[in-house]
């Protein structure tokens, strides 16, 4: 503990300048969580695989000699070979480059829609929770209202009204996914708001935006990050589902959902057309779920099961 003889009185002694380098570096909760995550072999392995898949999809098309939409009807529906590692589809397009390009779309849908959902959900939820009372009640009833809309019908209506477009799909998915984010952030803020450090921030006269941004949101970010990692695969599944129904990404553009849809049509004759995109999709979903689980255990050590 501290020694009382050392204690000084405010203003009475001229404090020597404290050099930045002399300070004992603290270990933030984020740092601790990262250290815990690094010990989780499954999560780290998943992270590595996920990064590799991302690199494969993003950089791959530049290295491949084939164009994703170039048809070669003379070499249609060939199995995997030295020329076409994943084989070709019925129109003779190289499957590997289509998996890469499709992966770009799928991953982008997953990330963009999640980031949109995250931004709207965190700000909306934190505001509702912080203000509380009638404002909170009406803001959350609006969320309930959107929740009650059947998603598929909502998307079909959008497509019918505005025509099919990929951006519309982003909007539709974002509109659905921010709802649960907002609920989680709101309930987190509600319980944090009663904590004494928030009362202390109020009694120091900090502005509302400062209290929300510096004191509330960083403390609800843990669960939000976990939900976000688990939202990415959910969104990718939604995209695949919509594309499968023919409502999402339109041919000749590819996404993993579109490729799986094409593959299942011919799966008995040309199984590789289903196998490769489905394998990439499944591995990506597994990885994201393992990363999400690992993050949850790392950010909230109490929830970790031994």
């Amino acid at each position: 503990m501290t020694d009382h003889s050392e204690t000084a009185v405010l203003g009475k002694d001229s404090a020597p300048v404290i050099a930045e380098e002399e300070l004992v570096e603290g270990s933030s909760l984020w740092k601790d969580a990262w250290a815990r995550l690094r010990k989780n072999k499954v999560a780290v392995g998943s992270l590595v695989v996920f990064v590799l898949i991302c690199l494969f999809c993003v950089l791959g098309p530049f290295l491949s000699p084939y164009d994703s939409n170039a048809q070669d009807l003379f070499s249609g529906a060939e199995g995997p070979s030295a020329d076409h590692w994943f084989g070709t589809d019925t129109l003779g397009r190289d499957l590997m480059v289509r998996v890469m390009v499709g992966g770009r779309i799928s991953l982008m849908v997953g990330l963009v829609a999640t980031v949109v959902a995250l931004a709207i959900g965190v700000i909306y939820g934190a505001t509702a929770g912080y203000i509380g009372g009638k404002v909170d009640a009406s803001m959350m009833r609006f969320v309930d209202l959107l929740y009650a809309l059947p998603f598929t019908i909502f998307v079909i209506l959008l497509m019918v009204a505005f025509g099919r477009s990929m951006w519309l799909m982003f909007v539709a998915i974002g509109c659905v996914e921010w709802l649960s984010m907002a609920r989680i952030v709101r309930s987190g803020v509600l319980s944090l708001k009663k904590q004494e450090f928030v009362e202390a921030a109020v009694s120091l006269g900090y502005s509302h935006s400062r209290i929300i941004l510096r004191h509330l949101i960083p403390n609800v970010l843990g669960p939000v990050i976990v939900i976000a990692t688990l939202t990415v695969p959910a969104v990718m599944l939604l995209e695949a589902f919509l594309s499968f129904l023919g409502l999402g990404v339109q041919p000749p553009n590819a996404s993993w959902g579109v490729l799986i849809n094409e593959g299942q049509a011919n799966m008995e004759i040309y199984p590789w057309l289903l196998l490769f995109p489905a394998a990439f999709f499944a591995v990506t979903l597994f990885c994201l779920n393992f990363i999400g689980d690992g993050l949850r255990d790392a950010l909230d050590p109490k929830s970790a099961k031994d």
Binding site: T2, T7, A8, V9, I18, V24, G26, S27
Partner: peptide, 28 residues
């Protein structure tokens, strides 16, 4: 910057704490 750190160090000494610990987090 330095002026703020100096003032924080002064405050920590006033309450009998080691000012070199100022970069630490509450859970420590």
């Amino acid at each position: 910057g330095d002026a703020l750190r100096g003032r924080v160090a002064e405050l920590l000494r006033t309450v009998g704490m080691n000012p070199f610990q100022m970069k630490r987090y509450p859970h420590e």
